[in-house]
Design a protein around this nucleic acid. Structure first.
Lengths: 174, 174
DNA sequence: CCATAATTTCTGTTTTTACTGAAATAACAA
DNA sequence: TTGTTATTTCAGTAAAAACAGAAATTATGG
């Protein structure tokens, strides 16, 4: 596939942004390509289009599948797997949210709860406010976690509606 | 400073989480240490506590200062800089939000707008839905950007209040 | 079964990022 | 000034991550 310059620009930028958020550059590029693609793509076509090694594409696709962002589909008369992602940005957001919550927020919550428990048990002279600071951080992560949970539960349509409600929501807090 | 085990656990975990979000591990650790510290710390004390090289601490502190997360303070009778961060998690959140918006969201918006303009100009046969997909993504980033903007403008107290309103907000969207 | 196609795993290489220690610079007190 | 302390810059090193190509495995059609 010969990629339009516009698509290239998007994919490259997406790779760059992914890298800044802890996502492997090629993984993000593969996902961006699938997002733009009108149809599921076989691994070889990804190889050609992005000019990265076959093995690398294989690993990247696996990774995207563990995130629940990409799935393999079969077509009649073709032994190869074809890969696709949702084209609904809100659905993608939801999936990423859920997965980052599971991988990062939840473990952090666990650690923080342990820390708070320990801090309560033994007041330190070195860090008298340890307990307070950890509790404040715990509350923050708990609230973030709860938002993530709720957002991940919403249907994509509703998530979009909520996002568009922005202004009126923020007025509640002024 | 001899760090309580609990503080160590928190700092190490925080470094790890930072790394997953594109923040250098030691930079995140330095910030975590300052967050727990009852008073501003001189660079040397950070060196001892985290056992990383002086130069590394220097670079890390610079980085945190460019983020607006850390500031240097002077004390009478001590030539050394002492470094401190806000102890208000909501304030920290606000600062990070603003900075990531500036560094990542805004440039992405610019690229996406270019892409959408280009896609409209030249419909591609390869990717007929390029335009639609880019527009959907643009809308998503625009809404995210707007939320970030508004959240970054709120006073920390109000941000916390809003966060606690979670449930009722999400009911709006069901 | 065999041959072939598709995919994955593995190993070594390349690239990038992080880090250290030394040297240079700056800030300051005597 | 000059000596001392603090900080930054720089160059080389080390560690980590990403990647490619080959080999191995798996799946499938004949």
């Amino acid at each position: 596939m010969i990629l339009p310059a516009t698509a290239q620009k998007f994919i490259v930028h997406w790779g760059e942004m992914g890298a800044r958020w802890g996502i492997n550059r090629s993984v993000a590029q593969i996902h961006a390509l699938l997002y733009l693609s009108p149809k599921p793509l076989p691994a070889d076509e990804i190889v050609e289009t992005l000019t990265i090694a076959r093995s690398n594409v294989s690993v990247g696709l696996k990774e995207l599948q563990t995130w629940g962002l990409v799935r393999a589909t079969q077509t009649l008369g073709d032994r190869r797997d074809h890969f696709e992602t949702s084209t609904d940005v809100w659905e993608l957001f939801r999936v990423i949210l859920r997965e980052r919550k599971r991988r990062e927020l939840d473990p952090t919550l666990a650690v923080l709860r342990e820390c708070v428990a320990e801090a309560k048990a033994s007041e330190s002279i070195q860090l008298p406010e340890l307990d307070d600071r950890l509790e404040a951080m715990l509350e923050f992560i708990e609230l973030t976690d709860a938002w993530g949970e709720r957002a991940a539960k919403l249907a994509p349509k509703n998530l979009r509606r909520l996002a568009k409600l922005g202004d009126s929501i923020f007025k509640l807090a002024e």
